[in-house]
Design a binder for these strands. Structure first.
Lengths: 339, 339
DNA sequence: TTGTACGCGTTATCAC
DNA sequence: GTGATAACGCGTACAA
């Protein structure tokens, strides 16, 4: 068992003082060449590395950033985390990931665990429960303590901080526009009530696009399903009830289900019905037929969030100016739409 | 801006010594009730929380565990991380996630970043490059320093430490057995050379199952594709060349591709060809037809790894006994196979 | 019952 | 050139 070596050990062994060792290892001019060489050689031999914790305590900088997301198995969040990680790492920061599991309490606990010195700043996306409760005191506390915070995707107006969001309305708008251009008239929207602000944005985009194309919005063509359970029955009934030639879904799982039901009914995709889904994830890419999707660019989002945060962390000045960065979503065309 | 309060502040404000404050906040018997109450009230009022870094430095315990995985966008790793996180969190540990991106250098750098005091132990799955290089000195260094390490999934014999692996051979065996039971005779295996030990295990299972069922292994029915690029052409040619009534794929993306090609050729799934894929991820679940899959139980794996690690961290005794936990894979039957 | 002193590992300032 | 000292924030053995 190799012992971990500290400045103190080196000092004792080489019969010099701790501060001499410290300086020598930093190549300080104050120390004579021979002492430096002696010390550096010894340090190298025993593989000396400064203790991060001690350094953190000293400069009140941990070089860690805390990331709190509702769920990591969700592809979108995964890509964001990846983006955060990549950028942060390139700047010498580590990423501590905590999951709120959509729970308010877990979110609060995780924040508190990390806020007491473990991290230099937070990047987070709000838990659903937090949004429903509309209680942001834990965030307020953090920002009041001067800990930098960047919110992404699921954000709130009630907290002043840097934010990164996606232009969801625009995404839905583009998608519907595309469908109309393809000659579709009876365009359905499959959404969920639970989706909070995001669901609303997407629905708005859908409505606006139809309106701008001179198509009256038919409320019967908007199907709102409960978030969690997918039942094919509801979708099947919907198709039986309404005549539909295109479907926009607020996420790819809905899109997969609605496409499957259509295929089962013997409809051809994209000839009879076209499909577009939000969130360009694994499913959209590998499904058959593959899904045209509105890409959220999670990785880019993560990088930007990371960049904003680290900039705030490293800027000495306490400017109280916050930005909101808007990522443009893009349409990735695949087999489920024409052309 | 609310200042962060320390023991020192409280002591100064209340005109007592720092240690009195420290003891009072721990409800020590030594301190009189009134002083305790005074101090506790003050601490509560100003929302005092001990500084994690200082505590870490003191007890040489960070309550952080380092996780290094090749990729987080890969569904399997994501589920493992989730399992790790859940268990670790329940024990008061935070999880620092680093991505090696399949690169040896990144793996080494990340380990070194974390090893100098930032974490109490590691959980990791080897980068592909590391496996190819067959260089495990960084792991050796860690274990020699007495830092607990748990390897999962992509492990190596060359390092003595706790491990969690999946019984891949058994998984492939079960899958093939199932196909044979369904009356299939010409069972193909679509695999990849890059998959190292894991690919080998799966191939072995495939071979053994066939042999045990009295079917001679036809080497022409084993298609080995390059890891990264999927080209439908190769699979299509394969189908044209060989007659096949069932396919086992070493991961779900291959399964999706090979199923898509079959469907395009007008084959019926599962009537004409059955499909089984490794890794029970999002794709298998939501595809149409949905894929029968060999579940890897990533989340459980993560939990076990986490449990093993924390046990090692918290056990005082330095026993040098290491376990290898084997997770049994299970077959999740869906639409791509009969019954 | 309260306070002093020291140590965790590092760094920075100041004295010799 | 080198070393002693203090400080980061906390906890604890020991002294008062």
């Amino acid at each position: 068992m190799k012992k971990v070596i500290t400045l103190k050990h080196i000092a004792r062994e080489l019969e010099v003082s701790i501060s001499t060792v410290s300086k020598a290892l930093k190549n300080s001019e104050e120390i004579s060449r021979e002492t430096k060489e002696r010390i550096q050689a010894y340090a190298k031999l025993y593989n000396y590395r400064p203790n991060n914790i001690a350094v953190s305590l000293k400069n009140k900088r941990t070089k860690n950033i805390g990331v709190i997301v509702p769920d990591i198995v969700h592809h979108f969040f995964t890509t964001v985390v990846r983006g955060i990680e990549t950028y942060a790492n390139s700047k010498g920061y580590n990423v501590i990931v905590c999951l709120s599991d959509e729970s308010f309490d877990k979110e609060v606990i995780n924040m508190e665990m990390l806020a007491n010195g473990s991290i230099d700043g937070f990047i987070m996306s709000l838990a659903m429960e937090t949004q429903l409760k509309n209680d942001y005191n834990h965030l307020k506390e953090i920002t009041e303590q001067g800990i930098p915070l960047v919110l992404f995707d699921r954000v709130t107006d009630q907290i002043e901080c840097d934010k990164v969001v996606i232009n969801d309305r625009e995404g839905a708008y583009m998608a519907v526009k595309k469908l109309v251009e393809n000659g579709r008239k009876k365009i359905a929207l499959i959404t969920t009530d639970n989706y909070l602000s995001i669901g609303k944005e997407r629905t708005d985009g859908y409505r606006n696009a139809l309106r701008d194309c001179g198509i009256t919005v038919n409320e019967n063509l908007i199907l709102s399903l409960p978030q969690m359970r997918m039942d094919e029955g509801a979708i099947s009934d919907f198709y039986d009830r309404e005549e539909v030639d295109a479907v926009l879904c607020v996420h790819e799982i809905f899109a997969m289900y609605s496409m499957r039901v259509a295929l089962k009914k013997g409809l051809k995709v994209p000839e009879d019905v076209e499909f577009i889904g939000f969130t360009d994830g694994i499913l959209s890419k590998y499904a058959y037929p593959s899904l045209t999707a509105i890409a959220q660019h999670g990785e880019k989002m993560g990088e930007i969030a990371s960049e904003m945060l680290i900039e705030k962390i490293e800027s000495e000045k306490e400017e109280e100016t916050y930005r909101t960065e808007v990522i443009q979503s893009t349409l990735v065309e695949r087999e489920s739409t024409l052309n």
